[in-house]
Simulated scan of single mutants.
Amino acid sequence: MSGPKKRTRAGTGGNKPNAGASASAASAAAPRGGKGAPAAPSTGLAAPLSPARAAAYVGLFLLGAVVAAAGGLVQAAWFPGGLLLALAAAGGLFYGGATALGRTGGVLAPGAGWLVTVILLSDTRPEGDFLFGAGLGTYVFLVGGIVLAVICATGSQLRANGAQTARLGK
């Protein structure tokens, strides 16, 4: 009554591509330089933006703005300790965003929120009011926050590209 059944490989469904086809495609795309060289892990840059990840980016942007505003107030109020606390909060946010999302965007979103807020707060208004005064602590906070964002973004790119730690000279 029914025709001959199509035989499939063990472990694969009838409509699913078999593992041999994907393995041969991966070996064809592998670099020719080395025998059995592992392919670099995907950074996910071409992955579509999911609603959850978009919400995470918006939340990190807003959190970066809050950390910048709070850091601007704290760093001037308690000079040496407040400056360290403000920079630690910014660095923790940047590193936490990179770790939570596993992407460079996890650093860029709060870094952009931090930078936009700091620029808006450092601009003088016609009334003469401004939040950041000219002083060493203010400049260390501004430059230090940018340096921390760059360090965290660079570190997240290295982790995403699969860079391994190595000891030189041994």
Rank of each mutant, 00 (worst) to 15 (best):
L148I: 05
R7Y: 06
P41K: 02
G105E: 10
Y57L: 15
G96M: 00
T165H: 07
G14I: 00
T99R: 13
G135I: 07
G96Y: 04
T104R: 13
Y57P: 11
G20L: 06
L84A: 12
G105F: 04
P38Y: 00
I151A: 12
G91K: 09
R103W: 08
L87M: 04
A30Y: 06
R53H: 10
P51M: 08
R103K: 14
T8I: 07
T8C: 02
F94C: 02
R159Y: 03
R32V: 06
G72I: 05
G20C: 01
G14Q: 01
A39Y: 01
Y57F: 14
A65M: 10
A98G: 14
A90D: 00
V147W: 09
R53N: 05
K16P: 01
R32S: 13
L158N: 05
V66Y: 04
P4K: 15
G36V: 07
G96E: 01
I146C: 11
I119S: 12
R32Q: 13
A56M: 07
L121P: 08
G144R: 02
G96H: 05
A134L: 01
P126S: 10
V74E: 00
K5F: 11
A39K: 02
Q75R: 12
V150W: 07
A39F: 01
G3W: 05
Y95F: 04
L62A: 10
V150T: 09
L62D: 02
L84N: 01
A68K: 02
R32N: 13
L45G: 08
A19D: 08
G102Y: 08
F79Y: 14
T99L: 02
A166T: 13
L85P: 10
Y95R: 09
G133I: 04
